[in-house]
């Protein structure tokens, strides 16, 4: 591994811990309702929202009311974003005169942004008006991030409370995390990005003459805008040249900040964080990867403080860091080796596999970014994962298959990891014949049913969705690369959607009614099929009595539990997918020497 990569990872972990620790303490204070000193403006804004919306901040909810409120809130978000896209041609802040979005694409995008997935079948700069980007997509970036965080806070409250039927007030939790945490950090972050060169304006797109004439292969499109293929399934292209380029403009920095901080990942532009207006410099790239893990790491510290045992938070955090280190080293190794097929064609492979990567970032920063963005359910990309080597591309795919629990999405990563912790305790209890308990709460039949639903729903959606797609003509029609790689493209799309990651392997033409509908199902139920049982767990734990530590209690704050938790995540989380992986990236890797 290169010295640059090693130094980047060391610096990354050091800065991440230095920033996330105080943030974790702050989130604890915000979510336990402490008065934040110097927060007069925030307090008055909070009070104003309660007054306008008729919210009694002292009223608490049981878990079912909390869940129904959260589901309704997010459905309203879906309806709003759907309607906005359907009407954007008639609305302001649309200097390019972009037309209304097709119903299936609007539906997919609305579900995608409300579920914190940010899967993008559309091309942002080619289809979305500034109003849609800001009022629809950026707003959902905040609200979906807040939705994830409040769910984990409620689960932690469930552990911390005892003999209570209530778990908090949804509207208070959503308001406080948005006002005190997400918006202030995003404002500072957006200003930093503008300083680095990210754009923030409402100008019309600019046409410029390029320095050189560019030659390219232009894919031929049919009447529906889909690429025409020959009988072998390859896209038919025709040679073309141009000396003109259109530079898209827009309010990019403000969307970029929450896109990374909220682990949303939906880029303003199609090229996402590979676009110089979204991610202009190596420094902005480094800060972007810091911001992806910032809140998920901070929530581990919040967890430790809220349950009254900081070691519990460290155990979860160290488990995440260990898995992160291993998978990142693997993807770095394979990408630094280069692509033997390209080397055989005479391409200089000394810099590693540079296909699909920005020269500004190179192999190291692209590989580290890919690992982080797929471990977290961010999904932003600064390189094309489709162009990674087979095993280099395997890791981002496998990272998502872990269930987005290694840091994961804001809130969703930690609640997913805590579900695995309950499972780990249960398995250990079975092995040694003791009644399992975690953080002073007995794990009984109902809790295990909820854990089973939460863990099994995403692999089911991903694998059944992939199976349907490869068995139907509509599904196969979207593949750009026939064979094992084409299978990987479909598997990646459904894994990314069901786990609410949102990154794309590229190469799959997914903006069709078939994929827009099927992936929307995966995204919605991948999100709420987990949130609902997690909230049920929170309610069940809050109602239980707290039992004191005794000689039969399995310690969950030491190295042994780190090993047990990591093993549970890897075995249970990822083994579901092994047969599918064998048909995609693994067989592709095994075929490399043959092609070579």
């Amino acid at each position: 591994m290169s010295s640059h990569a090693i130094l980047t990872i060391i610096l990354y972990i050091a800065i991440l811990l230095a920033l996330s620790y105080p943030l974790g303490i702050f989130i604890d204070r915000v979510m336990t309702g402490e008065v934040i000193s110097g927060g007069g403006l925030f307090r008055s804004t909070e009070g104003f929202i309660y007054k306008v919306c008729g919210i009694d901040p002292r009223a608490e909810m049981n878990w079912l009311s909390y869940a129904l409120g959260l589901i309704s809130f997010n459905v309203l978000g879906v309806v709003f974003v759907f309607a906005l896209q359907q009407l954007q041609g008639f609305l302001p802040l649309n200097p390019q005169g972009l037309v209304n979005i097709s119903p299936d694409s609007s539906f997919n995008t609305a579900i995608s942004f409300a579920t914190n997935t940010n899967w993008q079948a559309y091309v942002g700069e080619g289809t979305m008006s500034y109003l849609t980007q800001m009022l629809g997509l950026t707003t959902q970036n905040f609200l979906s991030a807040a939705s994830g965080i409040v769910v984990v806070i409620v689960l932690i409250r469930g552990f911390a409370r005892h003999s209570l039927q209530t778990i908090g007030n949804l509207w208070v939790d959503l308001t406080r995390i948005t006002i005190y945490v997400l918006i202030p950090i995003s404002i500072i972050y957006a200003v930093f990005l503008v300083g680095q060169g990210a754009i923030q304006n409402f100008d019309a797109y600019k046409d410029v003459k390029t320095v050189q004439i560019t030659q390219f292969d232009n894919p031929q499109l049919d009447a529906a805008g889909q690429p025409i293929k020959d009988e072998k399934g390859a896209v038919i292209t025709e040679p073309a040249t141009t000396d003109q380029q259109t530079l898209p403009m827009g309010p990019v920095a403000s969307q970029e900040a929450i896109k990374m901080l909220g682990t949303n990942g939906g880029g303003f532009f199609n090229a996402n964080s590979a676009h110089p207006y979204e991610n202009p410099t190596p420094l902005s790239n480094f800060i972007q990867i810091i911001s992806i893990f910032l809140i998920p790491a901070a929530l581990c510290f919040t967890f430790g403080r809220m349950v009254g045992d900081k070691r519990q938070g460290w155990v979860v955090l160290v488990t995440m860091l260990l898995i992160f280190l291993v998978v990142t080293c693997v993807v770095l190794y394979f990408e630094q080796q280069g692509n033997p097929i390209l080397t055989n064609l005479g391409v200089n492979g000394s810099m590693g596999n540079m296909e699909g990567k920005e020269t500004r970032f190179g192999v190291d920063d692209s590989s580290i970014f890919a690992s982080i963005t797929t471990l977290a359910s961010c999904g932003a990309v600064n390189a094309m994962h489709d162009s990674f080597t087979p095993m280099g591309g395997f890791i981002p795919l496998w990272n998502m298959m872990l269930g987005e629990v290694v840091f994961g999405g804001v809130g969703s990563g930690l609640y997913g990891m805590l579900v695995f912790a309950i499972l780990a305790v249960f398995i250990a209890g079975l092995m040694i014949g003791r009644t399992p308990e975690y953080l002073g709460k007995k794990i009984e039949s109902y809790e295990m049913k909820m854990v089973a639903i939460a863990i099994l729903v995403t692999p089911t959606l991903a694998l059944v969705g992939t199976a349907i797609a490869v068995m139907t003509s509509d599904g196969v029609a979207g593949i750009a690369n026939p064979g094992a790689h084409g299978f990987s493209e479909i598997l990646y799309a459904f894994t990314s959607s069901a786990n609410n990651n949102g990154s794309a392997f590229a190469g799959l033409s997914a903006n069709t009614p078939f994929y827009n509908s099927l992936l929307a199902i995966a995204m919605w139920f991948g999100r709420f099929g987990v949130i609902v049982p997690v909230l049920a767990l929170a309610g069940a734990f809050a109602a239980k009595k707290k039992i004191s530590v005794n000689e039969g209690t399995m310690p969950t704050h030491g190295p042994l539990f780190i090993v047990l938790l990591a093993g549970t995540v890897i075995l249970v989380g990822a083994l579901n997918y092994v047969p599918a992986l064998a048909l995609g990236p693994i067989v592709e890797q095994l075929m490399l020497p043959v092609i070579h």
Partner: peptide, 30 residues
């Protein structure tokens, strides 16, 4: 066509609410 997808949203809503109520019933408590 838009109404079809709007209908999908309502179906998603109903199914998710059903899941929540099913989980509550499974535990015999809310």
């Amino acid at each position: 066509m838009s109404l079809v997808y709007f209908g999908y949203i309502l179906i998603f809503f109903a199914l998710t609410v059903g899941l929540a109520k099913g989980c509550a019933r499974l535990g015999g408590k809310k």
